[in-house]
Design a protein around this nucleic acid. Sequence first.
RNA 1: CGGGGCGUAGCGCAGUUUGGUUAGCGCGCCUGCCUUGGGAGCAGGAGGUCGGCAGUUCGAAUCUGCCCGCCCCGACCA
Length: 515
Amino acid sequence: MAEQKGKQSAGGKDNNKITSRAENYSDWYLDIVHRAGLAENSDVRGCMVIKPQGYALWEKMQLGLDGMFKETGHRNAYFPLFIPKSYFAKEEQMAEGFAKECAVVTHYRLKSDPTHGIIVDPEAKLEEELIIRPTSETIIWNTYRNWIQSYRDLPILINQWANVVRWEMRTRLFLRTAEFLWQEGHTAHATQIEAEQETQQMVDIYRRFAEEWMAMPVLVGPKSEGQKFPGAVYTLCIEAMMQDGRALQAGTSHFLGQNFAKAFDVTFQNEKAQREHPWATSWGVSTRLIGGLIMTHSDDTGLVLPPRLAPIQVVIVPLGKNETERAPVIEAAKQLQQTLRSLPRQEFFGYQSIQAVIDDDYQKSPGFRFAEWELRGIPVRVEIGPKDMENKTCVLARRDQPGKEGKQMGIPLTGAADAIVGLLHQIQTNLFERAKKFRDSNLFYADTYDDFKKQIESPGFIWAHWDGTRETEEKIAEETKATIRCIPFNRPSEPGKCMVTGKPSAGRVIFARSY
RNA sequence: CGGGGCGUAGCGCAGUUUGGUUAGCGCGCCUGCCUUGGGAGCAGGAGGUCGGCAGUUCGAAUCUGCCCGCCCCGACCA
């Protein structure tokens, strides 16, 4: 009896399968991250290990973004991880905003102790504590003070790729971790208008990157007062809808006014020999984008990668029962791999050659190998077997249509490389269109607060009128857990009345529950 | 930090209520045979201080206390 019970219950959950989205969205997400080998939790609370497959995605993101930053005149630099507490305190709004989640270094030495092993040396207390950067405005503007004397020194257009630490209570791989990787741009300008143009330009770069590389449609526009970056005059954002209908802030670009220049006493002389404070921006996206990528495209079969972001675009799976069958198949696979690799480089792939791998692990059954590569999200799979060799053809399978549905048989090997490139472009477009369609079909309207409360219980974003005050937004957040995600630039011009207070509203804004 | 749940092999779990010899199962892993157009099969094998510490007991995965960690729900957040 006991044995039988054990047998039945053991493995009750098939750990070979991915939890379906319908069953448990959050388990589905974690299954994808784990099974596709992107990342895992480390022993350090709240911190993840980004594994090679996951890091490769980040590298492709860096490739795409860094290129766009450079094209617009930015240069990379690196500033310290540690920020003296006094610097941090200088910009009040920001210090307050991040105070609750700062890691602080208080000592600089350990020593061995007979009873406790290694201990913090109480003699080695720092005179001034160091904050581990949650963001770098303060240390950078403290540095800019020395770099900026004249209007001729401006603009300063700097970006840094770095890690930051925000001590979060609850973490989720990629979406919210205590330490994460990001880029932060920090610019200084002679005029307000130029800084505001920069803020706009950078959010537009984020939009382009999200849409063109990640195939992730986004809403673009300012945040509400309540949601903006502490220390910013205003914050522009790109906001995406995940497949569970929740919002993900995917990137932000801040107009900082002269706040940091004043806090750090940064001035320059203009053409008329007058002293002025420069105008600032900062902007960033993080490894959170990987979470957004997963939750935008992936399905119950596994990860789905848009071709422009996929570190490997093509996998070739040779088939065959024995050496005699396999030899010519392998030869054809190698030729195709070589042809793909030597195609003219396209901007579409970041001017990198198309990466194709051959999976000739015959120990694994064909079905196993097909499933495995689908799980890992490779956009195109090529199957070549003995039957194909008779006709000099192959089979192409597209990841955006998993299983047998996405297969095209009888593709001539001679034209296969071109067909694959075409397919990669198609997949990229299809993924974007599909995600956009999903997003748009989950945009709802609410005119009364009652309707809003009802609608917010279902997935999706809601267009609603709001009186523009922080109090009303807070009340809504408290009562419905929804916040204003974005005030889209392209919103229809439609004055109305706030659904809560009845006060006038200039136009609808986007509400949603968010990550 | 409040409420709930859980720590047993790399992963997923049974066993704990009612203490009793060498702690089981599925997947994965290793060896061999066999097989290959959608997650194959057979045979053999390796792998555990049962989260930690202290206690109760002739005897603890199982009972008691303390501690640590993880997950979910809240408060907070890119």
